[in-house]
Design a protein around this nucleic acid. Sequence first.
DNA 1: CTCTGATCATTT
DNA 2: AAATGATCAGAG
Length: 243
Amino acid sequence: MIKKFPISPENEEKLLNNAKNLAGYTIKELANNINISMPNNLKCNKGWIGKLLEYYLGASGGNTAKQDFAHIGIELKTIPINYYGKPLETTFICVVPLINNIGITWISSYLRYKLSRILWIPIEGEQRIPLAKRRIASPILWSPSKIQEQWLKQDWEELMDMIVLGNIEDITSRHGQFLQIRPKAANSKSLTKGIGRKGQQIMTLPRGFYLKKNFTDIIISHHFNLCSNNQYLKKINSYFDII
DNA sequence: CTCTGATCATTT
DNA sequence: AAATGATCAGAG
């Protein structure tokens, strides 16, 4: 019997334990357990797994600009991994503020708030594995280390400088060592307000902050105590142990 | 094979 | 349009 936790947990220990109880189960097992229908793939349901896990763990943020578990200061993120535990996708964190950035610093930024504490739930994500058979891995409760926060701060400041100075159109996903800015929109015709090259208001594509895979790889690798020489030799089963 | 730019669903 | 949840898929 798979446990579901409709009530938001009262502290992070309970949340982490609840998440650990889901490790090893497949997507199909979780869906069947609560009698919800499952799509054949994620093509038209990209956030489906994230919503499923939010439901199981009792996330309460909804579509509001809060953490998923605001009362205990935790954000929930699912992350697709391959056979060796490497991230398959970048991780969206939040929308990039393109205007009204006067006085915003790293410390007061929404990005830093969202990244302050995250419950990562890795999930098998290779497309050769049918969605129904993909397994939930052991969760990782994480906060950025000093050096990790320094890396992110550096990227954030460089990118925000470009935005404030009217160079948003020059930013590509190649900017930033660990943090990148990419489109975050319904399609390429979506528009939002931004600052142009001469300081004028322009309409531009909405953007999002994403963690690059090299960053999330470090989080996952460190958590499972894998050393640099053999970290990718370990089999995926290591990630499904219920600790 | 990997990465960048584009895209999908839903709610407010 | 903007926020939430992310992954797709063609280009290189």
